[in-house]
């Protein structure tokens, strides 16, 4: 156990050090969701708030939840990228030739990516408050639950990303698949429009998208409603999503590295 902690800490610190030296990519990673989604998209689609059945006071308030979860989606799905590059550069081989518990490779990724994701969520919420006056009406407890929902969704995504990083040959293919997955997941969710405004078949598919659940819960917490029953249901759905993706991931991982 002590050994596992030492390994995991060392591997996590490596990612932290890398990040601190890639300042440009860190800054753009933080600014991109705010600039693109909140400011541009939010203003462009303000009229969406006039759709019948729209519950939020305005579109920005509505969209904030979507932007939070989309950021979780992006960070989570790129959680396996570093591992992919380690695999290609041979660095992974160096790590695997050491007498480490194989799981420390995975744990360190989870810890690092979830840490980054937490910071991103907080920064987005802060920006939404400073720029548009949007804040979680459910208070600090609500903020804690927003983080929890985000991280539970992120957990499963990281597992999927790690699985693909191990299963797929070449980073070209990996990024192509990621690009292919991301947009449908966003459009088949309630990130940008409420479910009432979707064509029937899209609304139907959105019901199977774990992202929809995460967004709905975050949105309620931002607008200010406490719907404990719904929140609990969302947490169960996300836990199931995590269990499936982690189960899959661990099978692929252990087949690859023993």
């Amino acid at each position: 156990m002590r050994l596992l902690l030492q390994e995991t800490r060392a591997l996590t610190m490596r990612s932290v050090k890398r990040l601190s030296r890639e300042r440009i990519s860190m800054i753009f990673g933080l600014i991109q969701p705010m600039l693109f989604w909140l400011i541009l998209f939010g203003n462009l689609f303000q009229k969406t708030a006039q759709i019948p059945g729209f519950q939020a006071p305005d579109y920005i308030t509505f969209l904030t939840a979507g932007v939070v979860v989309m950021t979780v989606l992006n960070s989570g799905l790129s959680g396996g990228v570093d591992l992919l590059f380690d695999k290609e550069s041979g660095f992974l081989e160096r790590l695997l030739s050491a007498p480490i518990n194989r799981n420390s490779l995975i744990y360190s990724r989870f810890i690092f990516v979830m840490g980054i994701t937490s910071v991103q969520i907080l920064v987005i919420l802060l920006a939404a408050f400073l720029l548009f006056g949007v804040y979680p009406h459910s208070g600090l407890v609500g903020l804690a639950f927003i983080m929890l929902v985000g991280l539970l969704f992120g957990l499963g995504l990281i597992a999927i990303s790690l699985t693909l990083a191990f299963a797929i040959k070449g980073h070209g293919n990996f990024f192509a698949l990621m690009g292919f997955l991301t947009l449908p997941l966003i459009f088949l969710s309630t990130a940008l429009v409420p479910i009432q405004a979707m064509p029937g078949w899209m609304a139907f598919l959105a019901g199977f998208n774990p992202m929809t659940y995460a967004i709905e819960a975050v949105r309620e917490l931002i607008i200010g409603g406490w719907h404990w029953g719904h929140l609990l249901k969302v947490l169960v759905v996300l836990l199931a999503f995590d269990a499936v993706s982690i189960g899959l991931s661990s099978r692929v991982f252990h087949r690859q590295v023993g």
Partner: peptide, 8 residues
Amino acid sequence: ILVADLYH
């Protein structure tokens, strides 16, 4: 340092 930690 990383390698040293991996070998405990």
